[in-house]
């Protein structure tokens, strides 16, 4: 055998030891996590309930599902409210995120300020959605308006994070080119920066809208509007058919929104 080959053999990356350590580490973490599992709540009733829920999903309460007028029991109206909360909340969040994003973008404010901004964004993200919901209910009272404000504040974190990435990706060459034409500061922002940002910003907001509609379905749990209250109340009273109607409402609306949102976003990105 040629010495060069043996030499190359000795230079091989030793991944086995590293991989084994990583694997053992992962196993230890999982075994440690398993310790949290508590099966105390399981009883023979569970199977019956599971069957009842599946039965109900096949035959949900149609009176609720196809009722377009009654307050509180009309699934279409409740889902409309849920979507409205998600929609208004997204617009609120997308607007509120703008200052946070511009004040945290490294290429605009520099590294120190950017770190401060990112920390503030992280702090806002720490507030769980229900805590925000309950805090806003102290202002508006229970109802969908509290939901809108909650969704708005809760989406600031993620939206501004994505905004920051978009801003930091800006192509600076265009600004230089505009400089060469003698453009003013305002003109540079208007023609050099804004066009680069809008499509991606809108795409981000639409993406978050999908998530927000899903989140709006659970806000009812703390009284902040949407279909959540009806769903939890029906589950709590073992009214499976009513709960199933609410679940179907969520499925249909979320699926439709996902399809539309994917279409719009792919058009936005492809620049049509």
């Amino acid at each position: 055998m040629k010495p060069a080959i043996l030499e190359m053999y000795d230079k091989r990356p030793r991944t086995l030891v590293r991989n084994t350590i990583l694997f053992v580490l992962m196993a230890v973490i999982l075994v440690w996590s398993w310790e949290t599992m508590d099966y105390g709540g399981i009883n023979e009733n569970g199977a019956v309930v599971a069957r009842n829920i599946l039965d109900a999903l096949i035959r949900p309460n149609e009176a609720w599902l196809f009722n377009f007028t009654a307050t509180g029991t009309s699934i279409p109206l409740l889902m409309l409210e849920t979507v409205a909360i998600g929609f208004l909340g997204t617009i609120l969040g997308a607007i509120l995120a703008l200052p946070f994003a511009f004040l945290s973008a490294r290429n605009i404010v520099g590294p120190v300020m950017s770190n401060v901004g990112n920390t503030i964004i992280s702090i806002i993200r720490t507030f769980p959605i229900f805590i925000l919901g309950l805090m806003f209910i102290r202002v508006t009272g229970p109802g969908p308006l509290a939901g809108v404000l909650t969704i708005g504040i809760a989406s600031i974190g993620m939206i501004s994070k994505l905004y920051v990435e978009i801003i930091e990706d800006i192509d600076k060459g265009i600004l230089l080119a505009l400089d060469a034409t003698g453009a003013t500061r305002f003109q540079k922002i208007r023609y050099g920066i804004i066009p680069q940002l809008t499509a991606n910003f809108i795409s981000t907001a639409i993406y978050r809208f999908e998530i927000n509609v899903r989140n709006a379905t659970i806000l009812g749990l703390v009284g902040a509007g949407g279909i959540g209250f009806t769903l939890i109340a029906a589950l709590g009273a073992y009214r499976w058919k009513d709960a199933a109607a609410a679940l179907w409402g969520i499925i249909v609306v979320v699926l439709v929104i996902e399809i539309i949102s994917t279409k719009i976003r792919s058009k936005l990105v492809s620049g049509e």
Binding site: T36, M37, D38, Y39, G40, G41, I42, N43, G46, A47, V49, A50, I53, R214, N215, T217, I218, L221, L231, I232, L235, Y238, A243, L247, I250, I251, V254, L255, E258
Partner: peptide, 26 residues
Amino acid sequence: LSFVRTFPTLVYAAILAFIFGYGTLI
């Protein structure tokens, strides 16, 4: 998979609570 993705984690937990009882399992 699209159907599975429609519900947030909390809705799954709320439903599973009636099947498996309360606790970290759900």
